[in-house]
Amino acid sequence: MDQTPAFASDKPLAAAPASGPNADAALSENEALTKLHPNYAHALRVQTTLMAIPVLFGALILELALRDGASAALGLPTGIIAGTALVIALALIIRVPARRYNARGYQISDDRLRVVRGLLFRSDTVVPFGRVQHIDVAQGPLERFFGIATLTVHTAGNHNASVALPGLGELLAREMRETIRAHIRRETV
């Protein structure tokens, strides 16, 4: 009973545009997904490049090792292995990070956080603030260079025990942490 006032004060904000879950769903599904920090696309690109380098080296070594043996015997043109690897790597580095960036997004309202991700395998998670156990803001070296951070909220559920939202501006991530924390405190006290 005693949390009803708090809930009532939230309610008009959360469900004001229309009544019923469908209208709510329509609202939350289509627009209103907030884009991540533009630097996140660059960070993704650098990450992909770093991952591609060892593979390219491997392809090059394989190419050199087989140059006199199998490739010559089969009459394959020079550079077939390393060349293919390079083309695929370039495609992954140039094309994919931007698409991955576009596929991601989040939405924060006054009582929940929604995280959308995945290019092929879409996943769309909603965590109400009332179920957040603790919150992490983490920064790897690459993220620090680009001035972005990863916000991770932890829940008590076995599935989605931690929901990570990478690619937020550093300040924004801290702000969001404070927002969520303030909400938890308000609900509990």
Binding site: P128, G157, H159, N160
Partner: peptide, 24 residues
Amino acid sequence: HSVEIVQNPLARLRGYATVHLGLA
């Protein structure tokens, strides 16, 4: 504790999804 809607490429094409509910 949370609700997640997951779709693989086929599921996106065909318009269905798996709903995971976070249960402690």
